[in-house]
Design a protein around this nucleic acid. Structure first.
Lengths: 328, 328
DNA sequence: CTGTTAGCGCCTTCAG
DNA sequence: CTGAAGGCGCTAACAG
């Protein structure tokens, strides 16, 4: 009648509750509820070697495009009673290492890294020897880790084909950082599609250090300086944030979009359809990426064979008023 | 020479490293680095009773206005080597309870609840008997828990005074849910300022069930139905998301903003300055709220006396083209 | 300055 | 079906 801890432990574990007498079970459940008893998962984690947590590494949560990904992850893993430990690297390699350290020392069952840069590869591979590491959003070219990505190469091609189809022949590209997989793939997709059509792209000597609005403004200024009267008729900007920055610079210089210049952005951000003009943009399925990465984490944790394969979600273009046939 | 575990433990704790011989310390650090040894914070947590984690409860991370708050929290707590466990309630009371349960059973050192609804109060107070609970973003009217809030009442007043100052006398309000502190306070601030000026506000029979774009559209439709030819000249919408929804409905009905109708939103969301027309909006200092909440969590965890006081950050209005003097 | 001891709360044998 | 025993890895207290 002393109700030993082991019996309570069994009763409280849905997996093993059937091993215990109905009456005892009911009594334990009732008593636990009444006394507000809650099992200690920290102690449980030490004993079982599994914490029921998933690490999530992002560059910067304040970037509006990453939040849906994290939302997708938490909604996927919460069904398995896992919780996310979210850390930010601020796109800094040293911080990346300390983030991995924090997560590893807290013994996460898996980690989803949605903010990898090329320089982080070795650290990530090292981390993967201690816990399952899944790359999401930002891929690494020659890396065996499972990756859940969006088809950025295809997205770049879509942007190019859309502009070519409209009849543009003088194109430019405002690029994001070249050590982030997405931007590299967007660039490759865009240029290869242009090359196939025999159209050359204005080559800006610089790329965005970070995919921010400020960098979009800077690159747009550079493009204006460089082109003088010979401005391209269309420009592909690697994300919406940069596109908005560029747009405001063009506007300030009296350059009308789309009459003087068509603009394609990337991400199809929440309010981008109500800016002036509504921006044509390649859609980024952030929630779906997050859910897929979460599902993959669950499968790997469960030890499903062949789960570690990865995933490539398709891209699509949303046409709006910022692109039109060239009018010059 | 056997290098006992306790010595290693001391060497690896910066707080206690000074208690150990320089040579031994160097040796231990070197060896640990070479073997990739990383202390197990799960075991440490069991022993010390503190996990180095902070729970963060939000309604929905995909809502673009909450991400900066979480960013503020993680950036504040990461300096103390704390990590955030982020969970989502989807504004559902049952999920709120299970979120609290997950966080509590994982023994978070504190939790920051940024998604409280009035109906959650009892559950939150119960949780606060097991871990420090800090309310952020959404306050609870008669609640002893420390709160870090934005001055929504003041924000509502700012919106009203701006419109009154422009000369509007026929005002309406598109309200958010009435069991969320922010919207209640915004409403009270707005109506009290209007009442003081002797101006009455069109009373819509319904309020938004959720502060979403769709609800903004629905309420705008209702306002149109109700007002017929007697449309107000200005409307205060409780957040930018709803304001954008309302704006698109007004536009579809040929109602021009600001000529026919001035609109004030709330949050001053990232791209809201580039929509058509740029939206006048009350700024929401999300990052600052997050940082303040994180700092408060740190102080409470550290046991600072009188830390549990809370905080009210001031509001400010950003005037843009969506508001003007009444032209009808 | 370093080693010994004990126990945090749980869960998994193993014996009844 | 239930109880007893041991140990997950760590660190605080104590003793050298």
């Amino acid at each position: 009648m002393g109700k030993d801890a082991s019996t309570v432990s069994r009763a409280l574990d849905p997996t093993k509750a059937h091993l215990v007498n109905q009456a005892t079970l009911a009594l334990i459940l009732e008593t636990a509820g009444r006394m507000g008893y809650r099992g200690d998962r920290v102690a449980g984690a030490l004993r079982r070697g599994t914490t029921g947590t998933v690490g999530v590494v992002v560059a910067d949560l304040a970037n509006p495009f990453i939040a849906p990904v994290v939302h997708g992850i938490t909604s996927a893993i919460s069904s398995e009673n896992l919780v996310a430990m979210v850390v930010e690297t601020n796109d800094d390699h040293v911080q990346m290492e300390s983030c991995l350290d924090h997560l590893l020392s807290r013994r996460v069952d898996a980690m989803i890294v949605a903010g990898a840069r090329f320089g982080d590869q070795a650290a990530l591979e090292a981390a993967s020897r201690h816990a399952a590491v899944i790359l999401a959003v930002r891929g690494l070219p020659d890396c065996q880790l499972p990756q859940v990505l969006h088809d950025d190469h295809g997205g770049g091609r879509l942007a190019a084909r859309h502009l070519l189809h409209l009849g543009h022949t003088r194109l430019a590209e405002l690029r994001g950082p070249d050590d982030v997989g997405n931007f590299v793939a967007r660039h490759q997709g865009f240029s290869s599609a242009c090359a196939e059509a025999g159209v050359s792209v204005v080559d800006l000597p610089e790329i965005g250090e970070r995919p921010t609005r400020e960098e979009g403004e800077r690159l747009a200024g550079l493009l204006l300086d460089r082109s003088n009267s010979d401005l391209p008729t269309a420009v592909f900007v690697h994300n919406d944030l940069m596109a908005l920055g560029a747009l405001s610079v063009f506007k300030a210089h009296g350059i009308k979009c789309p009459e003087d210049l068509s603009i394609v952005g990337y991400n199809d951000s929440p309010t981008i359809d109500q800016v002036d003009p509504p921006l044509t943009s390649v859609a980024y399925p952030g929630i779906a990426i997050g859910k897929a990465a979460g599902a993959l984490a669950i499968a790997i944790i469960a030890g499903v064979e062949g789960a570690a394969s990865g995933n490539l979600l398709p891209s699509s273009l949303v046409e709006r008023a910022s692109t039109s046939t060239p009018r010059r």
